[in-house]
Structure formats: C-alpha cells, structure tokens
Design a protein around this nucleic acid. Structure first.
Lengths: 242, 242
DNA sequence: ACCTGAACACCGTTCAAGT
DNA sequence: ACCTGAACACCGTTCAAGT
C-alpha cells in the first residue's frame, strides 16, 4: 500500500486499477472515485490521464488486447495451411475463455463507438491464416464480419430457462406451455438430454456448434471460390444443401 | 400537453415515455428525472410503478416485443415446410430492421440478467417452423442458440475502417500497414469493391451472408439427421467439406 | 389512492490553489 | 509538473407529508 502510493500515477496504472475494479465489482462500480481509491489518490488526479469516457475506452482496449494475446499465443504455427479451420477455431475458443473470465466485457465493448486497436493483430492473424489457405480476400473479409461477434463475446447465454425445480410447476408456467407447445416440448427434450450434466444448456457445446457451422460454411465457399470466382455464393448454397 | 398531464400515470405510460427518450437521446439519457419530465410529473412519482432497474428491464421488454411482432407479422404462412430457411431468414431480417431503428437496444439487452419474456413467441415460431420442416428438437434448440444473438442484434458493426480520406495517409496508418500486411491488402480490396456504393462495408450483405452460413449449416444437419439420428455432427462435417 | 418537497449519498467534472 | 480541496450540476432513492 505505501509502495503503491509512492510510484507516480500513469495512464497504465489507472487502467490497471480500473480493470481490477471491473473484475471484482463489475463495470458500474468503475467510477472515477472508486478507481482513485484503489490508487490511493483523489478522483481529480485521474483527469490528468483519462476522463470517464477514456477510462472505459481504455478498459475495452485492455480486455480486447488480452483476448488477442491469448488467441495468438497458444498456437503451434499450423503445419498444414489446409488446417485453417482448426487454427481459427482454436483462436476463437481461446478468445472465449478470456471473455468468460471478464463477463462484464461484452456489453462494454458493444457500447464503444469504435473497436479498440488491440483487435487488429488478431484480425491480421485470422486473415493471414485464411488467405494462406487459399481463401480470397473477399471471403476473408466476410469471415471477419461473421466471426467478429463470436470473438468479442457477443454470443452469450440468452436462454437460461429458469432452471425449474421440476414438480413445482407454477400455473404461469403451465399457461405458457399451453400457449407455446413447441417451446414446451423443446424444454422437455433439453431437460432429458441434460440428465447428469451441470446446466440445462451446455453453452460451450453450443458455442462450438455455431462456430463449426460458420467455419464449415466458409470452407465450402473457399472450395467453390478456388474453382471459379464467379457465382460462388449460389453454388455453395446448392452444394451445402445436398 | 394538458391532456397528457390529466391521464393518470401507469407502468405502460412510463415505459412509453422511456422508449421515447431512448430513441431520441439514447439509453444514458433515460433517467428517472428525464422520463418524469416527459410525463409532466416528478421523478418520485415513477417509483409507484418502476425503479431504475425495472425501467430498463421494461424498456428491454418493449423493444424485444417490437422485434417479435415485426418478425412474426409479415409472413405468408409458409406454403411448403421445406422452405423453412426462407421463413427463418425473413424473420431474422425483419428483426434486424427493428434493431436498426433502435441502435441503443442491443447493449441494453446484453446487460439484462434475463432475456425478456417477449422473446418467447418468436422462439416458439422459429422452433415450430424448424420442427415442422423435419428438424429434431435438439437441432432446433441449437438453432435458437445460433440465431439468438443475430435476432437480438448482437451482430453489429465492428469494423468501420475509419473511412480514410485517401491520399492523406497518416504515418500511423503506414506503420500499421507495414506491421499488418494482410489487413492492409484486405482494406485495399474492400475499398475497390465498395466503389460507388455507400459505405466501406455493406453491413446488410454481411449480415445476410453470416445468416446464410448458419441456415445452410443447419439444413445440412437436418438432412443428415433425417437419415440417421446417430453421428449426425461428424457426418455433416464431412458432407459440408465436400 | 396517488403524487410531491425536501433531503441524502453518490456521480462526473471544473478550477483555482497548493506542493 | 503533478496532485488536491472546494464546489457545481446531476444522479437514484427514501420518507414523511400533502391532496
């Protein structure tokens, strides 16, 4: 604590403190006064480095940078370029792990006017992998748009079906089951499938499923595009429906 | 104005006022005092119906309800069940149009602890369409997870490459181009493709592309699943790679 | 019953003043 | 130069008081 009070303030120290507060107490707790408290100084001192907007932008930059590093780190450098899907998949899963450690981050990133510059190295690596595997730049561009939301954690749990204690069926739940028979049946099936596992929905498996859908679709486009550059989209549509 | 002051307050009037403020000035402007101003009353009067948390939850409920209505409305009731992809696609695009009119909504929805009940009719319709087309409930379940983020607008623009005035290449931009050759080339290609169009990225086209990837992938799973219920996932992986 | 005035704790931010 | 005390306008919220 005395050591901390000694070293001079800096943008990096301020952002590190903000990250600490966000991880421990969530984004709403990241106030100028709270961050200053962590740094053993007054709120007004922070204004030499950031105002509130810059503080949140810096926090976004930091967490996205952490994602980029994690996604780029743990890779053996792809023996065969044809394995591009596995390389991209592992990068996306590594990104997801970081986001799971910072569950407050996705909505924060989503409210920023610009993506932080720390995403670019990650995008560069993804484009490099795809282009080297024979994807055109047009396809790589679309892939960035398709995968971006998954990389930045926008794909999250939407559907936590209230973990019903079975048996205690509320009259409200019964009314819903009558009005929505398909969803009611789906819930039954989900409960049955989830026997013995942790939650009702296996979000990890569902993330990987969606990711696989996107990657397989992109691969199909790559193959068609490699053969002929024209009419690729419709040809793929026909091919994947076979 | 006098008429407005006359009619008594109600939860619905409060939420309508909040929606008005959000559309006009964004979510941060939705304060108890600002909403009260629109209703010609004092902030404290709102507390008979909502506190701040309930106000934002109600706002989420309202906007997601609007999506659900829009997505369910404009549909001729699907002559052929085999056209399930077209039906689902149109619903997703209708949902997107609503979100584009309320650009403040996605991050708000993302910060809510639970999805609002107003999504359920939409999920019901999607599951019904898929199951009637021969998808199993397991696949329909995964589809909800794959499509949910797209329906609720979590897929948004991440990559607005700063719309550079060409020619005025900053030294910073040049440094980035050297460090990230693939992204630099991708930007060139994107600029070339965008000649004569509005923005650098055609977000509508990119949304539709990703949506098509997901729908085609689901259709491939449906076909394999219809043939044999076991080992569907790996079979599809092989099939879509052909 | 429905609404409100006064008050409290907290927020972002400015600015003149300290060292 | 770097930091701070006092102050301002604005939040969410409580509660006793009005009608």
């Amino acid at each position: 604590m005395p050591a901390r009070a000694k070293e001079p303030l800096s943008r990096d120290r301020v952002l590190a403190a903000a990250l600490e507060v966000a991880d421990a107490e969530g984004v709403p707790a990241v106030t100028m006064r709270r961050v200053a408290e962590v740094l053993d100084c007054e709120a007004m001192s922070l204004y030499h480095y950031v105002d509130k907007k810059a503080l949140l932008a810096g926090l976004t930059e930091a967490v996205v940078g952490e994602i980029a590093v994690a996604a780029l780190d743990d890779l053996p450098p792809a023996a065969d370029p044809a394995d591009w899907r596995d390389v991209v998949r592992r990068r996306c899963l590594a990104a997801r792990e970081v986001m799971l450690r910072h569950p407050w981050a996705p909505p924060l990133v989503a409210t920023q006017p610009q993506p932080p510059p720390t995403v670019y190295p990650l995008f560069e690596a993804l484009v490099a992998t795809m282009v080297d595997a024979g994807c055109g730049y047009e396809l790589a561009h679309r892939a960035i748009h398709s995968l971006g939301p998954m990389l930045l954690g926008f794909t999250q749990e939407l559907f936590e079906p209230t973990a019903d204690d079975e048996g205690a069926a509320s009259p409200q739940a019964e009314a819903m089951a009558l009005a929505m028979p398909y969803l009611a049946r789906l819930a039954e099936v989900a409960v049955h499938e989830a026997e013995g596992t942790i939650g009702l929905c296996d979000t990890q498996a569902e993330f990987e499923f969606t990711l696989g859908l996107v990657l397989d679709g992109l691969e199909a486009h790559r193959r068609v595009g490699a053969a002929s550059a024209v009419g690729a989209a419709s040809a793929v549509g026909a091919a994947s429906a076979v």
